[in-house]
């Protein structure tokens, strides 16, 4: 497998507090990679540096072998890094399909057209994406009235619309019911493997993490303290101490 995203010695401090310190890792195409750690460990800061929302103090982020450092989020997206947010961010005043169409219009650089009705553009492509995430039946509903789990599916379709090489998912299953969580991540894994997309996700639900991640990284106080296959991470004593705990509140005890 080839490396798609590599992160080298990434560091970021906020007002004297080291939020992320010397983090280095690489993600391969088609891989599902989880980034876990206590609240405030720097996961979101890390993500924000990967997609250009924050500028790191030092270090580099390479997509393929080109640096994407210093590019604004919209440029990073154009290079092929999609992102979903912890709290869904969709367009409430548009229908499900229009949400996808808007994304496609931006992707195909037709967003500044002022004459043709947007509704009539990229209809088939939008429907194909909705088909993949199982939202075709609800294409004409307003995003504002969708169930939360369905909204997450719309977000996934949006993230896939520009044919990304890398997908960053910030707590993709937060706020979902247990069964929905498993379904959504199974769907993500399936699509990632079919399209050879590298997926990097943060998550607090250990059932989801251990069911779907190929490899797991653990961040604590800004530093990577462990990286490896799920079983190795699960049995790592340091990880148990700072993050996993005794296993009483998730179904994943040490094996």
């Amino acid at each position: 497998m080839s490396t798609v995203l590599s992160v080298q010695n990434l560091s970021k401090a906020f007002g004297g507090v080291q939020a992320v310190e010397d983090v280095t890792f690489a993600v391969d195409a088609g891989e599902m990679r989880a980034l876990i750690g206590p609240n405030g460990a720097g996961k979101t800061t890390c993500f924000n540096m990967l997609n250009g929302q924050l500028k790191p103090d030092s270090g580099d982020v390479l997509l393929g072998n080109r640096s994407i450092l210093g590019l604004p989020p919209r440029e990073v997206w154009r290079r092929g890094v999609g992102r979903t947010f912890q709290i869904t961010a969709t367009y409430g005043s548009m229908t499900v399909r229009e949400n996808i169409q808007t994304t496609l219009l931006s992707h195909h650089r037709q967003i500044n057209r002022m004459w043709t009705a947007a509704r009539t553009l990229f209809v088939d492509e939008a429907m194909a994406l909705l088909e993949q995430v199982g939202m075709v039946n609800q294409y004409d509903r307003a995003c504002g009235v969708l169930a939360y789990g369905d909204l997450k599916r719309v977000e996934l379709a949006v993230a896939l619309a520009n044919d990304p090489q890398v997908l960053l998912m910030d707590e993709p299953t937060a706020g979902m019911a247990p069964r929905e969580r498993v379904d959504l991540m199974a769907l993500t894994a399936e699509i990632a493997s079919a399209r050879n997309i590298a997926v990097l996700f943060t998550e607090h639900d250990m059932d989801v993490v251990f069911a779907h991640a190929h490899r797991i990284m653990v961040l604590d106080r800004g530093r990577l303290i462990a990286e490896g296959a799920p079983n190795d991470v699960r049995n790592n004593e340091m990880v148990q101490e700072v993050y996993l705990g005794s296993g009483a509140v998730h179904g994943v005890g040490s094996a």
Binding site: Y91, S93, M94, E98, Q101, T102, I111, M114, T116, A118
Partner: peptide, 13 residues
């Protein structure tokens, strides 16, 4: 038009 959608997109999120 697409421009109008982008404008609304910026307002919504």
């Amino acid at each position: 038009s697409p421009f109008g959608y982008a404008l609304r997109a910026g307002r919504d999120s």
